[in-house]
Design a protein around this nucleic acid. Structure first.
Lengths: 222, 222
DNA sequence: TATATATTCAATTATTCTCTTGAATAATGT
DNA sequence: ACATTATTCAAGAGAATAATTGAATATATA
């Protein structure tokens, strides 16, 4: 299979890895896997794909070394193979943000409209959180929260937010976070909370990036 | 074009950028562009692709925001759009090296055989080069050297090495470099020089990574 | 051992991508 | 204006990929 030129042979391999990122469904699966280890069934349910389709995409990513699989009883659990996957995704985002007009348009028209404020940096949140000077709000679904979350975070999924406002202290600043840079949940949450008079901002990025930065995470049971 | 869900719309865009890396020819074009700005014709010649095919691949990368083009007279010069492209390529390499068996096999069977020694780090080379305690040898073709090279480097393309040994001081250590991590030129050069009794090692990575690290580069005229 | 469940495999169809060819465009020089 | 050169465009054949379906495999439970 490998050509005479080893560099060519390597480029073919690298291209195969890159090809794996070249599909929106797979990027969405990777965003889910960045939250933690998950079974095929749950991934299919979260993404709205069929089980067979989900399985095929996962296997393709496994062949490319992007994810690994582990069998536990009836279930096969997938996870990211490497922290470099997050770096790869971050670099992909940077290029698209800075050089693709359509991406700038989407980000401006949707995300900037909803939150003109700078996000809170991880360092700032860490300090304020240790000083108990802030409410850390995780707006992801319960199961993702259970898989791992920020120390001291309160979990109110976006869909339940309106019904559970009483759990939030109106006198304290709120910092909301969710799955990652373009997860809409925290944007929606912050917009809703501000409209209700709360002082709310978003954390930069999400849990996977917090974890990748080596900051403390409360790890739950799969 | 963009779906209701802005995240989905962004994933489609990110996937389009990634798809662009999913072809060995385009990775090779990017390696060339990492040396500096180049015209379509020269890129076609360096890669052995037809002009039309080269042009199409370049335009695809331009649409994805990976490269930019600039017209100068009859020629259109392409260059990398962003330093993040190098980061993206580095992350791609890391994942493939660490998780794809075939890549490990190629690297071991070709590159490790040729050079079991650790490469010289950029920092080490910078110090020894300033102290004039080392010969810095650029084994790329003349035109790539002219586009930009390390300070104080001597340019002897690999193909001319055997004929121009007299230009090298046998009493001084040699550090060879070329286009990047898997450019075979410096591996071949080091192997050949060692066989002739020289003390020779490779620089880690190549010129693009040296430049990306913010280290000094002698820039030539395009 | 028989049955249920989670996942993967295999085959099919529709779609997309690659490369080639020849023509079109854009700038230069006569 | 005309020919020349560099690049891009457009169209088509052939190859690769994506999603769907139903069958097959592997594990757990009765």
């Amino acid at each position: 299979m490998s050509s005479q030129d080893p560099k060519q042979a390597l480029f073919v391999q690298f291209a195969a890895v890159a090809k794996t990122l070249g599909h929106a469904h797979r990027l969405e699966l990777l965003e889910q896997l960045a939250q933690g280890e998950r079974s095929v069934e749950i991934l299919a349910q979260k993404t709205g794909l069929s089980i067979a389709n989900t399985s095929q995409h996962l296997q393709q990513m496994r062949r490319a070394g992007m994810v690994t699989a582990r069998r536990a009883g009836k279930f096969v659990h997938y996870r990211l193979a490497d922290d470099a996957v997050l770096e790869l995704l971050a670099a992909l985002r940077h290029i698209a943000e800075r050089n693709v007009a359509e991406v700038e348009r989407i980000v401006r028209s949707y995300f900037n409209d909803r939150d003109a404020l700078e996000p809170v940096s991880r360092e700032e949140l860490l300090q304020r959180s240790r000083a108990k000077a802030v409410t850390v709000l995780d707006v992801r679904p319960e199961d993702e929260f259970a898989l791992g979350h920020l120390p001291g975070a309160v979990n109110i999924p976006l869909r339940a937010l309106a019904a559970r406002l009483s759990e939030l202290d109106p006198s304290q600043d709120i910092v909301a976070y969710c799955r990652g840079p373009y997860c809409v949940l925290s944007y929606e949450a912050v917009a809703a909370l501000r409209a209700l008079g709360f002082t709310a901002r978003r954390l930069e990025d999400g849990l996977p990036e917090w974890r990748a930065a080596g900051l403390p995470v409360i790890v739950g049971n799969a």
